[in-house]
Design a protein around this nucleic acid. Structure first.
Lengths: 117, 117
DNA sequence: ACGCTCGTACGATAGGCATCGTAGTACGGC
DNA sequence: GCCGTACTACGATGCCTATCGTACGAGCGT
């Protein structure tokens, strides 16, 4: 049976849009690894599986960082088969803090150039 | 003798403009008290003495927060008599990360309205 | 059924940090 | 010279967190 590997029913807790706190977002992005994740997520059009990231930490630490981002309201996560897909919460963030995400991504890109990636 | 209470010679270490790291700035602003300080600093035209802030922490903790902001490159500090004056490093931040500071301040203001200050 | 891959849970550890109190220094006014 | 104000230095404390390793669960392919 071609069991279409769609979104699994085990779901993950996300903060509602109005529960997203600016301080939490800033704290989430103040870690180099998490900032890098968000940058890659923004660069890629659609959602990415956790395994697509080549991070300089172990898998358990990676899980931790993705959870911090999700609980801060920066990313949205869902299971698709065994993979866990990640996507930026652009819509919610732009609605709550217009222009902030773009400014942050631009700043991160600028710094990456300045420091030689 | 009318010893003009100008800038004292005991100076404070500030990061050079090119040493300012985005992660450090975000971390500095991810604390509610420090975000509040920066908001008040941005609202007021010129520099403000530490004692002008009415923060819900002791003086030693206040000193700590101002130092974090200074070492992250967010504010500039100098002594004037016994007072320590604080000013936003708008020029440097706008130069390094165009639009970021404004977006952050707008986001903070928006959240303050949303949550009832 | 079996194994493989992807991701989680849990405990341990080490370092960071927000907070305080107390004791001290620097400066200006009297 | 003496006092008061503004800020600092230092140590203590308790919490948070980034990291790891190991053991486990969930789903897919064969």
């Amino acid at each position: 049976m071609s069991t279409a590997p769609t979104t699994s029913n085990r779901d993950l807790p996300h903060p509602a849009r109005d529960d997203i706190r600016l301080e939490a977002v800033l704290h989430a992005l103040s870690d180099p690894i998490r900032l890098r994740i968000v940058r890659e997520l923004a660069a890629d059009a659609d959602e990415l599986a956790c395994s697509r990231f080549d991070l300089p930490v172990t898998k358990s630490t990676t899980t931790h960082h993705f959870r911090v981002l999700r609980e801060a309201g920066v990313i949205r996560q869902c299971y698709r088969g065994t993979a866990k897909m990640n996507g930026l919460r652009r819509d919610d963030l732009d609605d709550l803090f217009p222009g902030l995400l773009d400014a942050l991504l631009a700043a991160a890109a600028r710094q990456a150039v300045r420091l030689g990636d």
